[in-house]
Structures are given as structure tokens and as C-alpha cells.
């Protein structure tokens, strides 16, 4: 079983549309994991059935038991996050500001403060219209993606892939270069970098590739909207060559992306287009790169 992770650094490059197309093409052979929980949109294209859902707990927030509080104000004094305002003469916790450091709970002389683990979202296991098993998550407002959540989604996907003997796990990776993306990459066999030929796109590609390189993972790149700016596209190609990253495909600027999305379809389901053919070829190429 091989783990393929799709990442892009910045948003709006078409990463999710491309990942969903691969998921569609892979069908029964793959398990899909959506680790892009900040903008978890893949379910809009895959029509998951939410067969199994489970609450996800992460991070702690302080809670003050008013019956035990002696109103000494020590908690408010040590809190660096302005998270303990006095409302109606009571010390209260502002949950948006509380960072969960636990300092107040530790020093409260009346033991009136407890740290409560937060229910921050849900993890779902679904069957999709393409015949995949899909593991995906949703987070509540103000909840951060974390290495923990990504590890959880990936673990479920892996267990299912092992149990049902699947060939591939395809992971829609987290954005940025922080803890969640490290967790997305950890354990991967192959990385697909999705980028676009804009000044910002190139900059972000270089940044996220540093991580991939550090983890020694084989990588390939898809340049979306490649014909939008020939000069930058060329710069990207040169970068890939220098780093020995396979240039899997250059996709044209094509509104089929949006048109397909608008009717809830992946690119490869939506009519006949040049784009569709390139994406199909890309998946074949990726399979070859991963297994060799």
C-alpha cells in the first residue's frame, strides 16, 4: 500500500479539484483522506454518505467553578491572554481568548479551575460516489487544524486501507508549512505538488518543497493554469529540473474546473475536454512514479 499526499502551500491552486479527480479515477482501489480541514471542500465533489461519525477532542480550555471560586483574582493576574474578564462580579473565561495553557488552573488556591478538553469537530468515515472509502473531518469555528487531527484522519484511512487491501491512500494535504503539513507528509511515499504560475505560487512552492526534501520523499509537480503566465511557468519548470522533481503535467487555464465544480462533479466526470485527458494521463503517470 502506498501513501500519496497532495499539497500546494497556498490556496486556490486547484489542489482539491485535482485530488478529487484522482480519487474518482482511483475508485475502488483507493482510500481518500481529506487533511485540508481548514478548507475541507472535497466532500462537495465526492458525495460522501457520512456512514460513521465520531467527535474529535483537542486542546483544553479553562472552566471556573463559581461555587468554589474565592474571587482572589490570582487567575486573572497570571493570564497573559486577557481570557479571564470579570462579568457580573464573577471571574469568567473568554473561550475565544483562552489558549489552554493551564497556568490559572495550576495556581488557583481554591482548585476552582479545571481544564476541559474541547470537542472541536468531527471525523467522518464515508463511502463516496466513486466507490472510495473516504476519511474526512470538519472543525468548528476558531478551532485550529493540528498534527493530532491530521494523524487521526490518516490513521483511520490507513487502517481501512489495510483491512480492505487497497493499493493507494490519496491524501488531500494541509496548507502552509507548519505542524499539520508535517503530519500530512510523515509516512508518505509520494508527494504531488500542485502550483500555479503566479509570483506567489512559485514562492510558496519553493517553501513547501523544502519540507518534502527534508523528509526525503519522492515528488512530482502539476502546474495548473500553466499558460496563464509563460515566464513564471518556465521558472517553475527550471526549479523542478534543478531539484529533480518530475513535472507530471501542465494543465491549461480552463474554466471546466469551475464548471464541473458547479454541478458537483470532478473534472474527469464532466464532459469531454483536453483537461480531462491530461488529468487521466497524470494519474497513470503518478501510479508509475509511485510504484517504481
Amino acid at each position: 500500500m502506498k501513501e500519496i499526499v497532495v499539497i500546494s502551500g497556498k490556496g486556490g491552486t486547484g489542489k482539491t479539484s485535482i485530488t478529487a479527480s484522482i480519487a474518482y479515477l482511483g475508485g475502488k482501489d483507493i482510500v481518500v483522506a481529506d487533511c485540508d480541514v481548514d478548507a475541507a471542500d472535497m466532500h462537495l465533489l465526492m458525495q460522501p454518505d457520512f456512514e460513521k461519525s465520531e467527535d474529535f477532542y483537542s486542546g483544553e480550555i479553562a472552566e471556573i467553578n463559581q461555587d468554589e471560586c474565592i474571587k482572589c483574582g490570582k487567575c486573572k493576574d497570571v493570564c497573559r491572554f486577557n481570557a479571564i474578564p470579570i462579568i457580573n462580579k464573577q471571574y469568567t473565561i473568554n473561550s475565544l481568548n483562552c489558549e489552554g495553557c493551564g497556568y490559572c488552573a495550576r495556581i488557583c488556591p481554591a482548585n476552582a479551575i479545571t481544564m476541559i478538553e474541547q470537542n472541536v469537530g468531527k471525523v467522518h468515515i464515508s463511502n463516496t460516489k466513486a466507490g472510495n472509502i473516504m476519511v474526512h473531518a470538519e472543525l468548528g469555528i476558531g478551532a485550529d487544524n493540528s498534527g493530532k487531527l491530521v494523524a487521526k484522519v490518516k490513521k483511520e484511512a490507513k487502517l481501512l486501507a489495510e483491512k480492505t487491501n487497497k493499493e493507494f491512500i490519496v491524501i488531500d494535504g494541509s496548507p502552509g508549512v507548519g505542524c499539520p503539513v508535517v503530519s500530512s507528509l510523515s509516512g508518505a511515499d509520494f508527494v504531488i505538488l500542485v502550483t500555479e504560475p503566479t509570483v506567489a505560487g512559485l514562492h510558496d512552492l519553493e517553501r513547501v518543497y523544502q519540507l518534502v526534501k527534508k523528509f526525503n520523499i519522492k515528488a512530482g509537480c502539476i502546474i495548473n493554469k500553466a499558460d496563464l503566465n509563460g515566464n513564471v511557468a518556465k521558472e517553475i519548470e527550471e526549479f523542478l529540473k534543478k531539484e529533480n522533481v518530475a513535472n507530471i503535467a501542465n494543465l491549461p487555464y480552463d474554466e471546466t474546473f469551475t464548471k464541473a465544480m458547479t454541478v458537483g462533479q470532478t473534472i474527469v466526470e464532466y464532459g469531454e475536454s483536453n483537461l480531462k485527458n491530461i488529468v487521466i494521463e497524470s494519474w497513470d503517470k503518478i501510479k508509475e512514479l509511485v510504484t517504481n
Partner: peptide, 27 residues
């Protein structure tokens, strides 16, 4: 910053008005 997590909350905490920009697509 993009998203709905801590960085965007920090950035919008004290403002008078928020302009939300989006695309007319399902995403």
C-alpha cells in the same frame, strides 16, 4: 489570513467592519 481559525480571529477581533470575499462556486 485565510481560514476560520486563530490567526483570522486575531486579525478581525478589533475591526469595525469585515469584507468577506468569495467565489460563486460550491467551494
Amino acid at each position: 489570513p485565510p481560514g476560520t481559525s486563530c490567526p483570522v480571529i486575531e486579525a478581525t477581533k478589533e475591526v469595525d467592519f469585515v469584507i468577506l470575499i468569495t467565489e460563486p462556486t460550491p467551494f
